[in-house]
Design a protein around this nucleic acid. Structure first.
Length: 467
RNA sequence: GACCCCAUCGUCUAGCGGUUAGGACACGACCCUUUCAAGGUUGAGACACGGGUUCGAUUCCCGUUGGGGUCGCCA
């Protein structure tokens, strides 16, 4: 049997980080088993669903590298089929019309709350004849749920979970306007799509009991459930925007690599021995539902950053330059010239060791691509002694036959040895004069890549020294 | 409030009756070093509590406490 998983977000906002992990797990499980992974957009809430959100979700999935099989299914397009199933249930006596008003329902909830009883619909229309129907009121269709016994779910993550059926009420299948509710739509769509494994957040665990009863009433095969724990903020409370409940595009804009985010998300709630850096291929090979933890985990930006730094260090220079180009251009306030793109790539080995995000990468490159006037620390470095020292060094650099990092470094080293200075005493003022900063990628590389004229021009501008 | 779920270093986790309770991030120290990083070595740091079961509990059971989730004509 082919295993079919799905990710089914509702398009009321961006693809947030919790959803991204759910999608990742579904994707991995499908890959692991050689099955299929589908995407379904749950847009039955016409008030809150927007085309922008649909686009953001598709975009986020693509950026994260989670490719789905087939076309994304828009749930609302199947409203007629959902209604057909509900009406079938009605005809079979497994569902009924309910004419209770919103006011009645609210009273029911208040009364139950006061009495310390479970808050649920009391089934007042369950057995009333159609002749009792009040005139002019459009009814909803409710499911006739079992009222005794218990429903047990053998969840792949949570284990065996049971709940007394008296806790479950008769949920609405079709609204008064005839449109399907989520409860009906998921069940019908998962069935029609051939979904075999439902992997989703455990905020749906309680829904699963109701859905399972509906599936049984329909006589359809039961899916395998895996309810994964939610992701919390650093303080253990619900993930808020301030904490990281952002859309994946926000992570992209903060300069994280999709492969790093995948690795981070994978390790949040799932582990494989001591493995930390896990490639996609290994993840696919190792991923099982049984290895998913049962407790909620907290989002940790520091660990994400560390992972991102790792992936950046081992990434290809051209790839990184391309990925961080927009960040650099934003900082410079201008597009990069073709020659500068090459320079960016050439600078990359020294840059990527020093950054945890693409933004930091661009930060590191800023002082190479723009002529910055010396900041406070650079000014301190360029004191009178340092200028005198540089004044003696410049002619030797000017006289260099070959202008490359090795030759420049050799020359500066020889110079500092002669003068009895530590290399730092010479290299730091040079860095300050060339970049206007006390911190930069390796200075000899920068001087070499910038070229003789640009280097001397900058030194002249920042220290007044001419070579 | 009712129902459901969870509980190992600050964080992510390994552990599936007998371990000096392991790894990673973060943190401290040292080394390396042209700055900053990276890297190396190293240090500190956890089984929530109380009962059982057992020769023996971090591990199994019950309770307490603490956290989380769900109770819509939202999904």
């Amino acid at each position: 049997m082919t295993i079919v998983t799905r990710f089914a977000p509702s398009p009321t906002g961006y693809l947030h980080i919790g959803g991204a992990r759910t999608a990742l797990f579904n994707w991995l499980y499908a890959k692991h088993t050689g099955g299929q992974f589908h995407l379904r957009i749950e847009d039955t809430d016409r008030e809150r669903s927007t085309p922008e959100a649909v686009a953001a979700i598709l975009e986020g999935m693509k950026w994260l590298g989670l490719h789905w099989d087939g076309e994304p299914l828009l749930q609302f397009s199947r409203a007629a089929r959902h209604a057909e199933v509900a009406l079938g249930l009605l005809a079979a006596g497994k569902a009924y019309h309910c004419y209770a008003s919103q006011e009645e329902l609210a009273e029911m909830r208040d009364a139950a709350k006061k009495a310390g009883m479970p808050i649920r619909y009391d089934g007042r229309w369950r057995d009333r004849p159609a002749s009792d129907a009040p005139a002019g009121v459009k009814p909803v269709v409710r499911f006739k749920a079992p009222q005794t016994g218990e429903t047990v779910i053998d969840d792949k993550v949570q284990g065996s979970v049971r709940v007394g059926n008296e806790q479950l009420d008769d949920m609405v299948l079709l609204r008064a306007d005839g449109t399907p509710t989520y409860m009906l739509a998921v069940v019908v769509d998962d069935h029609d799509m051939g979904v075999t494994h439902i992997i989703r957040g455990d905020d749906h665990l309680n829904n699963a009991f109701r859905q399972l009863n509906l599936i049984r009433a329909l006589g359809w095969p039961e899916p395998i459930y895996a309810h994964i724990p939610l992701i919390h903020g650093p303080d253990g409370a619900k993930l808020s925007k301030r904490h990281g409940a952002l859309g994946v595009e926000a992570y992209r804009d903060m300069g994280y690599l999709p492969e790093a985010l995948r690795n981070y998300l994978l390790r949040l709630g799932w582990g494989h021995g001591d493995a930390e850096i896990i490639s996609d291929a290994q993840a696919v090979e190792w991923f099982t539902l049984e290895a998913i933890g049962r407790s909620a985990s907290r989002f940790d930006f520091a660990k994400l950053a560390n992972l991102n730094g790792h992936y950046m260090r081992q990434a290809d220079s051209a790839y990184l330059a391309k990925a961080s180009e927009p960040f650099l251009e934003k900082q410079l306030g201008r597009p990069l010239a073709p020659a500068e793109r090459d320079l960016f790539v050439a600078l990359m080995p020294g840059l990527k060791e020093r950054a945890k995000t693409l933004v930091e990468l661009a930060d590191g490159a800023h002082s190479t691509f723009a002529r910055l006037s010396p900041d406070e620390k650079a000014v301190q470095l360029l004191d009178a002694d340092a200028k005198a020292m540089l004044g003696a060094l410049l002619p030797r650099l000017r006289a260099l036959a070959a202008w490359d990092a090795a030759a420049i470094e050799a020359s500066v080293r020889a110079f500092s040895e002669e003068k009895g200075l530590k290399l730092g005493k010479v290299a730091q003022p040079l860095r300050a004069a060339v970049t206007g900063r006390a911190v930069s990628p390796p200075i000899f590389d920068i001087v070499a890549l910038l070229g003789r004229e640009e280097s001397f021009a900058r030194i002249a501008a920042n220290s007044g020294l001419k070579a």
